[in-house]
Design a protein around this nucleic acid. Sequence first.
RNA 1: CGGACCGUAGUGUAACGGUAGCACGAAUGCUUUGGGAGCAUUUAGUCCGAGUUCAAAUCUCGGCGGUCCGACCA
Length: 416
Amino acid sequence: MKQSQLFTKTRWEDPADETAKNAKLLIRAGFIHKELAGVYDYLPLGLRVLRKIEHIIRTEMNKIGAEEVLLTSLQSPDIWQKSDRWSDDKVDNWFKTKLASGSDLGLANTHEEPLTALLVHHLNSHKDLPQYIYQFQTKFRNELRAKSGIMRTREFLMKDLYSFSKTEAEFRVFYEKCATAYKNIFDQVGLGEVTYRTAASGGAFTQVLTDEFQTLSDSGEDIIYVDKVKKLAVNKEVYNDETLKTLGLNRQDLVEEKAIEVGNIFPLGTRYSDSLGLNFRDEDGILHPVVMGSYGIGLGRLLGTIVEVLSDDGGIVWPRTVAPFMVHVVALGDKKEVLEEATKLYENLNKNNIEVLLDDRSMSAGEKLADADLLGMPLRVVVSEKTIAVGNIEVKTRQIGEVKHLTEDELIKLCQ
RNA sequence: CGGACCGUAGUGUAACGGUAGCACGAAUGCUUUGGGAGCAUUUAGUCCGAGUUCAAAUCUCGGCGGUCCGACCA
């Protein structure tokens, strides 16, 4: 893409109404736009990142045998009344509205109920199980206090996966498979080093421990206790002798850290299958409730966490797996040959299926270089009179700032 | 939901109850081009509503919106 055609602009100053680093940088770089507190638009560059994250997650979900669906965001109160979660006393962040007919309607804050109710029509026999079903879908949560930029918003895209198993044992096997898939996901988006599987409480419905994936960051909302050797952690809410014993952790090996919850996986037991009537018959014709689990990753929060954790003073630093473009070609100076040379390189990279952003704007050199740092593409290539005279390509890695002089073929190889 | 603070051009900021100013941006022209260039001209603003006052960006009330602390977070 040519930057002269990108409608978004960068800003030099931080927005006055944000204090969170993720929002400051993403807004300054033109990746997102704020509509309201906790309500953001994704602009072209931001959307590219979001789609890459989505692709990474989808690939991992498919690998563990999950099937993708897309449920509606409009939800009937009936099924929520069956599980006793329609009342504002039970779920306090509902967005509710009405149909033209006057009847109540909920905007999805999660999808356990509708999916469970839907599967009553499809799952009957032990032969139909297990099933793993996921989607990327918008969740609406009427947060009392939206905060931390895009980390805690009122509308967000979530990958939610639900597992349906015959027995607790069968469920546990998949649960661990999914935990591994999650680990792969966080590794791939560049957060693996600082992300820990963390024991946490199951919330309102269960005494069983659940697992969160927590990324260490000072801007996190959670306090966790980390064993950096065993790569395990415990959330403060269940930090006690019993939990530590269960996990085989010792107090003296644990360090207190702030962290961002980037994903969670948890057992649902038969809570929803019981209340919504999702049962199956075993080989002997006996009826059993389906054993369920639920597994979520908020895409916006994950994107924001990448910015929080990996950016530096110059701006954002995207890992190549999620960067909007692999290469940022920056044409310096207003000379016709420079722009021609840069365009030639741009076209050649495109031909080789390398995603490239060409800065073909007529701006001062300093401004373009500062913009390149802010936008954070993994590789920056400068084309100027100097580089043309020398006859090779100047490549700078955004992350380390290392400058190399390469041939075009070497650059292409470096991108692949 | 409890508490604190805040709302002025597109952005960031200033103005004692008394002429709304500055910088950046944008536009035009000329110059400039390896780390946020220069000159000239131009552009654009007090969140909404009510009240007090000779006079309100400024004081009062209400609404809307924002940030932070706490609570909440299936």
